[in-house]
């Protein structure tokens, strides 16, 4: 059953879900690295991002790419406001922040279930068609996700490494108090980090919605994946999120193709339980957010 064609197919399938996992995990790990917050509401920003794109494209007639960009902006700003109102007053109380994130998750889901209903929607894909050769089938819409993820990653890298904001983010991630001494506006950095993380989740939602479907409970499964990736790569580690995301994507794809869907689902949990016990700080073992 294992042929070169299967292996190629496994790899490209894994690449798509891997790209999606990376986007989800990036924001999650950024938020943890800066705020020390396990953001249980992360999946909800992903869901909100997808719904904003849905309304912008199907109801306001905006083109898909502008809709994704606008959605990231809107959700990013909303994220900053959420940080200011919900999490800023709890600074330093990790457990309270975690429970609040759970509350936020429940509340966002509750509101959206009332507003949007619980049925599924779909966004028409901006590209159609499938690349086909004798040994591979790869839909262009998936290629687009991979391409856009690379663009977003490159932008994110430039932002972190070569901008004043990036410098402040890195300083706060390393040591909040020291950053404060250096005159970095720490509170603003916290809000921006949360907003940036939420925007990344919204982009993931916007990119993935045309391929899958959207409904108000879609955040839960996505959150679980982000969790697994971030533990694999190390909490707070950005390179870890990229490596972990691709690794999980390809591993799941291989296991689902070779052994079936349930084994692949179990795999994720066994992987992180193993990693947590063997090297709790992640496989890259260096947290340099």
């Amino acid at each position: 059953m294992i042929t070169t064609s299967t292996i190629a197919q496994i790899l490209v399938n894994g690449l798509t879900s891997g790209a999606f996992y990376v986007l989800m995990a990036l924001g999650f790990t950024l938020i943890f690295g800066i705020l020390r917050l396990v953001n249980f509401a992360h999946g909800e920003f992903y869901m909100l991002g997808a719904f904003v794109v849905y309304h912008l494209t199907t109801q306001l007639g905006l083109d898909y790419f502008s809709a994704v960009a606008l959605s990231a902006l809107v959700i990013g700003l909303a994220g900053m406001m959420v940080e200011k109102t919900v999490f800023a007053p709890l600074r330093g109380r990790e457990l309270s922040m975690l429970m609040s994130a759970l509350g936020l998750q429940i509340a966002i889901q509750g509101v959206m279930a009332v507003v949007e209903g619980v049925d599924g929607f779909s966004i028409p894909s901006p590209v159609s068609g499938v690349y086909r050769s004798s040994w591979l089938a790869f839909p262009y819409e998936r290629l687009l996700v991979v391409g856009l993820t690379i663009v977003v990653l490159a932008g994110f890298y430039l932002l972190i490494k070569h901008s004043t904001l990036g410098k402040s983010l890195r300083a706060v991630a390393q040591d909040g108090e020291a950053a404060l001494m250096q005159g970095i506006p720490v509170n603003r950095v916290y809000a921006i980090a949360f907003g940036l993380g939420a925007a990344l989740a919204a982009i993931a939602g916007g990119l993935i919605a045309p391929i899958f479907s959207l409904h108000v409970y879609m955040g839960q499964a996505a959150l679980l994946k982000a969790f697994i990736v971030v533990i694999l790569g190390g909490l707070g580690s950005i390179p870890g999120a990229v490596v972990g995301g691709l690794l999980l994507g390809v591993a799941e794809s291989a296991f689902a193709t070779l052994f079936g869907g349930l084994t692949a689902e179990m795999l994720g949990f066994l992987l992180i339980m193993g990693v947590l016990l063997w090297k709790p700080t992640g496989i890259l073992a260096r947290a340099d957010g």
Partner: peptide, 18 residues
Amino acid sequence: WQQFLYGLILMLFMRFLP
């Protein structure tokens, strides 16, 4: 609104009666 209320109560609790 029960789900929303539940989430909201939880957040308020963490804020004011941690």
